[in-house]
């Protein structure tokens, strides 16, 4: 992956726009999901995602792969754009409060578990925004702690602590009945 992306960077810096297209293909869904988790609005998430890539395209000449990886760079752009959005919409909701994910497509298993999933999401919503971000990036986006650390601006060790504490907290919060119900469905 690193080699491929590095090749793309070189080509883009040489003026090959198609190489940027390839990079776009790699990241567009990830960035969209990331924005969606923080806006819970499909249309708005896409608008902001578009802004992210517009800005990345405009500013790519400033990106230096020797100083940081593209993933953290574009997530940082996304984060700033989301923050800008909430700053300009103070009256509605803040960046840290925004969490109300809902499914567009539910699997059969999820439909069966929808009540339970809704409860889990409610618990996730009680976490502070940084903890929630670490949890989402690690579990839902399968990112390494190194990548997460670069995006949220903390150390790797710090991210591990946050993740561990959040799991323990959720373990304590989610009622036993919920576990039993879950186990019944699964076993």
């Amino acid at each position: 992956m690193e080699t491929t992306e590095q090749q793309l960077f070189t080509r883009i810096h040489d003026g090959d726009k198609d190489a940027f297209g390839a990079l776009y293909d790699l990241y567009v869904q990830k960035i969209y999901r990331f924005v969606y988790y923080k806006t819970f609005n499909k249309e708005l998430a896409w608008d902001l995602t578009s802004d992210v890539f517009m800005k990345a395209y405009e500013k790519f000449h400033q990106f230096n792969s020797e100083k940081g990886n593209f993933s953290s760079w574009i997530y940082a752009i996304a984060k700033n754009i989301i923050i800008d959005h909430y700053r300009s919409h103070k009256e509605t909701q803040s960046y840290s409060d925004a969490f109300d994910v809902s499914d567009e497509y539910m699997t059969k298993q999820k439909i069966e578990m929808s009540v339970d999933i809704a409860a889990v999401r409610e618990h996730i919503a009680t976490l502070d925004s940084v903890t929630r971000e670490v949890l989402m990036l690690r579990l839902w986006e399968d990112m390494s702690y190194k990548e997460i650390a670069e995006i949220i601006g903390k150390t790797e060790a710090n991210c591990k602590v946050i993740f561990s504490r959040s799991i323990k907290k959720l373990r304590a919060q989610i009622p036993l009945t919920s576990f039993l119900l879950f186990i019944t469905f699964h076993l």
């Binding site: 869904q29 969209y32 499909k42 499914d103 339970d116 999933i117 889990v120 839902w140 799991i167 879950f182």
Partner: peptide, 15 residues
């Protein structure tokens, strides 16, 4: 179970 539930809680959103 917590982790599995958390993974299942991932919203399925696509552009």
């Amino acid at each position: 179970i917590v982790i599995e539930k958390l993974l299942l809680a991932k919203p399925q959103v696509f552009v």
